[in-house]
Measured scan of single mutants.
Amino acid sequence: RKEMTAACTPRRRIINLTSVLSLQEEINEQGHEVLREMLHNHSFVGCVNPQWALAQHQTKLYLLNTTKLSEELFYQILIYDFANFGVLRLSEPAPLFDLAMLALDSPESGWTEEDGPKEGLAEYIVEFLKKKAEMLADYFSLEIDEEGNLIGLPLLIDNYVPPLEGLPIFILRLATEVNWDEEKECFESLSKECAMFYSIRKQYISEESTLSGQQSEVPGSIPNSWKWTVEHIVYKALRSHILPPKHFTEDGNILQLANLPDLYKVFERC
Results as ranks from 00 to 15, higher is better:
3 E>P: 13
5 T>N: 08
6 A>E: 11
9 T>G: 10
10 P>D: 11
10 P>E: 11
12 R>V: 10
13 R>D: 14
18 T>E: 05
18 T>Y: 15
20 V>C: 12
20 V>T: 11
21 L>Y: 14
21 L>A: 05
21 L>H: 12
23 L>T: 14
24 Q>S: 13
24 Q>V: 12
25 E>Q: 11
25 E>M: 09
25 E>H: 12
26 E>S: 09
26 E>N: 07
27 I>C: 10
27 I>H: 14
27 I>F: 13
30 Q>M: 10
31 G>C: 13
31 G>Q: 09
31 G>R: 09
32 H>W: 10
32 H>T: 07
32 H>D: 05
35 L>N: 09
36 R>C: 14
36 R>G: 13
38 M>L: 07
40 H>K: 11
41 N>W: 08
41 N>F: 08
42 H>F: 10
42 H>E: 09
43 S>K: 06
43 S>H: 05
43 S>R: 08
43 S>D: 12
44 F>W: 08
45 V>F: 07
45 V>N: 13
45 V>I: 04
46 G>M: 02
46 G>T: 02
47 C>M: 06
47 C>G: 10
49 N>T: 06
49 N>Y: 14
49 N>K: 04
51 Q>E: 10
52 W>F: 06
52 W>G: 02
53 A>N: 01
53 A>H: 02
54 L>E: 03
54 L>F: 03
55 A>L: 09
56 Q>F: 03
56 Q>H: 07
57 H>R: 14
58 Q>K: 13
58 Q>D: 03
59 T>R: 03
59 T>F: 12
60 K>P: 11
61 L>M: 11
62 Y>I: 15
62 Y>A: 13
62 Y>R: 02
63 L>A: 09
64 L>C: 07
64 L>A: 11
64 L>V: 07
65 N>C: 12
65 N>M: 01
66 T>G: 01
66 T>V: 09
66 T>E: 00
66 T>N: 11
67 T>Q: 09
67 T>V: 11
68 K>C: 11
69 L>M: 11
69 L>D: 00
71 E>V: 07
75 Y>C: 12
77 I>R: 06
77 I>S: 14
79 I>L: 06
79 I>W: 15
83 A>K: 02
84 N>A: 10
84 N>G: 08
85 F>N: 13
86 G>T: 06
87 V>R: 09
88 L>N: 06
90 L>R: 00
91 S>F: 14
92 E>L: 09
93 P>C: 07
94 A>D: 01
94 A>L: 05
95 P>E: 06
95 P>R: 04
96 L>C: 03
98 D>V: 08
98 D>R: 03
99 L>A: 04
100 A>G: 14
101 M>P: 00
101 M>N: 15
102 L>W: 13
104 L>A: 01
107 P>N: 07
107 P>K: 05
108 E>F: 04
108 E>M: 04
110 G>T: 01
110 G>H: 01
110 G>I: 01
110 G>Q: 01
115 D>C: 15
116 G>W: 15
116 G>D: 03
117 P>L: 15
118 K>Q: 14
118 K>N: 15
118 K>G: 15
121 L>E: 01
123 E>N: 02
124 Y>W: 02
125 I>F: 02
125 I>L: 15
126 V>M: 06
126 V>A: 08
129 L>G: 01
129 L>Y: 14
129 L>R: 01
129 L>H: 10
130 K>A: 15
131 K>P: 15
131 K>Q: 13
131 K>I: 14
134 E>V: 04
134 E>C: 03
138 D>P: 05
138 D>M: 04
139 Y>Q: 03
139 Y>C: 04
140 F>Y: 05
143 E>M: 11
143 E>T: 10
145 D>Q: 01
146 E>I: 06
146 E>M: 05
147 E>Q: 06
147 E>W: 12
148 G>V: 02
149 N>S: 04
150 L>C: 06
151 I>A: 08
152 G>F: 01
152 G>M: 01
152 G>P: 00
152 G>Q: 07
154 P>L: 00
154 P>D: 00
155 L>N: 04
156 L>H: 00
156 L>F: 10
157 I>Q: 06
158 D>N: 05
160 Y>M: 03
160 Y>E: 00
160 Y>C: 01
160 Y>A: 01
160 Y>L: 05
160 Y>P: 00
161 V>G: 05
163 P>H: 07
163 P>Q: 05
164 L>T: 02
164 L>F: 07
166 G>S: 11
166 G>I: 03
167 L>H: 00
172 L>T: 02
172 L>G: 01
173 R>M: 03
175 A>T: 14
175 A>P: 02
176 T>M: 02
177 E>T: 03
178 V>R: 00
178 V>E: 00
178 V>T: 04
181 D>K: 02
181 D>T: 05
183 E>T: 02
184 K>A: 09
184 K>F: 06
186 C>V: 02
186 C>K: 03
186 C>L: 02
186 C>Q: 02
186 C>H: 03
186 C>T: 02
187 F>L: 05
189 S>M: 02
189 S>E: 03
190 L>N: 00
197 F>S: 00
197 F>N: 00
199 S>M: 08
201 R>A: 13
201 R>K: 11
201 R>N: 14
201 R>H: 13
203 Q>D: 12
204 Y>M: 09
205 I>A: 10
205 I>Y: 08
210 T>V: 06
210 T>L: 07
210 T>R: 06
211 L>G: 08
211 L>H: 08
211 L>R: 09
212 S>A: 07
212 S>C: 08
213 G>A: 07
214 Q>N: 07
215 Q>K: 03
215 Q>V: 06
216 S>D: 05
216 S>F: 07
217 E>N: 07
217 E>T: 06
217 E>G: 08
217 E>F: 11
217 E>Y: 13
218 V>D: 08
218 V>H: 08
219 P>Q: 08
220 G>H: 09
222 I>S: 09
223 P>S: 09
224 N>G: 08
224 N>A: 09
224 N>F: 07
225 S>T: 10
225 S>K: 05
226 W>I: 05
226 W>P: 06
227 K>S: 05
228 W>T: 09
228 W>S: 05
228 W>A: 09
229 T>W: 09
229 T>A: 08
230 V>Q: 07
232 H>A: 12
233 I>K: 05
233 I>T: 10
233 I>S: 11
234 V>M: 11
234 V>R: 00
234 V>N: 00
235 Y>R: 06
238 L>E: 01
239 R>A: 12
241 H>M: 11
242 I>E: 15
242 I>F: 12
243 L>C: 12
243 L>G: 14
245 P>N: 11
246 K>A: 10
248 F>E: 12
249 T>M: 08
249 T>F: 09
250 E>T: 08
250 E>L: 14
252 G>A: 08
252 G>E: 10
253 N>K: 05
254 I>K: 03
254 I>N: 06
254 I>Q: 02
254 I>P: 03
254 I>V: 04
254 I>H: 11
254 I>E: 09
255 L>E: 03
256 Q>A: 06
259 N>E: 06
260 L>V: 03
260 L>K: 06
261 P>Q: 07
261 P>L: 13
264 Y>V: 05
264 Y>L: 06
265 K>I: 15
266 V>Q: 15
266 V>C: 13
267 F>T: 01
268 E>D: 11
269 R>D: 11
269 R>V: 13
270 C>R: 15
270 C>T: 15
